[in-house]
């Protein structure tokens, strides 16, 4: 209840801080990791490039993971089918981007961005609508039963992946980046890839938008209260089910957005791409603490940065670095960075 009280009683912009003042420690992890990497890598340009790559990847993972963690926090529902929305989002984007190839190839960055924006709108609308159906048909009958939830949402994932094969064919689809955000900007010795900057920008917009909604609106207040104690919110006369459907749809739409971004990053789409990245998403939400947006953000940046740094320093260790990070964090805080609130 701490958040609720502060954002209502004091005029301070509470969204800057996750919870109690003493709990700011995890926020320091990301800058600490970034600074620690500098002497290890040695070369400044390489460090900048890797950091940017890590931030971009982290932002994309955050976009995909944030919806999942909120859905879990609010209703104790763990959606293993979340990966399907990522894949479907990316494939929906091809419906816009492939016919609009002329816009994508144009030398005008605004046309490029317009095409991507349109693709994002289509993907988010599509996955959002699908999320509504998924919630009704797949998730609703198994509220409160974890075992069945995992099984049924896995089943939903299998069906969704197969439907992608049916609708888009079994072969992989190439999704080239538009000319405007291809390549890199070179400043001195430092090369900054344009698409990564773009991804960081989109991620920041999503983060800020989400924090504003969660902390400055009545809806956000209800969602946060629901994460803290859903029975109490219900007892106060709010329809927690409707709130949950809304969050589920929003989370699915965000997964769709993440899928578009991830698809453009990979430049090749396969039906299983969502499930591949889901492994990272799960690690991120475990690290962050199930139900916490801030924890999810920090977790996503940590996982992605660490993957990029270790990939450069010790490629063999990079494979296990995420697992190692998860183990260390869980040894420190068994519920994840900000996982104390939920049961």
């Amino acid at each position: 209840m701490a958040i609720v009280q502060r954002s209502d009683t004091t005029g301070r912009p509470a969204w800057r801080l996750p919870r109690l003042a003493g709990d700011r420690l995890p926020l320091l992890l990301v800058p600490a990791l970034v600074l620690l990497a500098l002497p290890l890598i040695g070369a400044f340009p390489a460090w900048i490039t890797l950091t940017l790559a890590g931030l971009a990847m982290g932002m994309m993972i955050f976009i995909m993971a944030s919806g999942l963690t909120l859905v879990f926090g609010l209703m104790d529902v763990l959606n293993f089918g979340h990966g399907a929305f990522i894949s479907i989002g990316a494939f929906l984007a091809t419906l816009v981007l492939l016919p609009l190839a002329a816009w994508m190839q144009a030398d005008n960055i605004w046309m490029n961005l317009a095409a991507i924006a349109l693709a994002i709108v289509v993907a988010m609308a599509g996955t959002g609508a699908l999320g509504l159906v998924f919630e009704r048909v797949i998730v609703r009958p198994v509220y409160g039963q974890h075992l069945k939830q995992i099984l049924v949402t896995m089943g939903g994932l299998i069906i969704a992946e197969q439907m992608i094969h049916v609708l888009w064919g079994p072969q992989q689809i190439a999704l080239p980046l538009p000319t405007g955000i291809r390549g890199a900007i070179v400043v001195g010795e430092v090369a900054l890839e344009r698409y990564r900057l773009f991804a960081v920008g989109v991620g920041l917009v999503v983060l800020i938008g989400m924090l504003l909604v969660l902390n400055r609106t009545r809806l956000g207040l209800l969602i946060r209260a629901g994460v803290e104690n859903s029975e109490m919110v219900q007892a106060l006369g709010y329809d927690i089910r409707r709130l949950f459907v809304l969050v589920f749809v929003a989370g699915s739409a965000l997964a769709g957005l993440g899928g578009v971004m991830w698809g453009l990053y990979r430049e090749v789409l396969v039906a299983g791409m969502g499930m591949e990245v889901m492994v990272l998403v799960f690690i991120v939400i475990i690290i962050g603490g199930l139900g916490s947006v801030w924890g999810c953000f920090i977790g996503a940046l940590m996982v992605a940065l660490l993957a990029n740094y270790t990939g450069f320093l010790m490629p063999k260790v990079a494979l296990g670095s995420n697992i190692l990070l998860m183990v260390l964090i869980l040894l420190w805080r068994p519920q994840g960075l900000y996982g104390g609130a939920k049961r």
Binding site: L78, F80, I150, M278, V279, F282, I283, I285, I286, N322, I323, M326
Partner: peptide, 8 residues
């Protein structure tokens, strides 16, 4: 947690 950790 078990489901997610085993997957990872």
């Amino acid at each position: 947690f078990f489901a997610m950790i085993t997957l990872a």
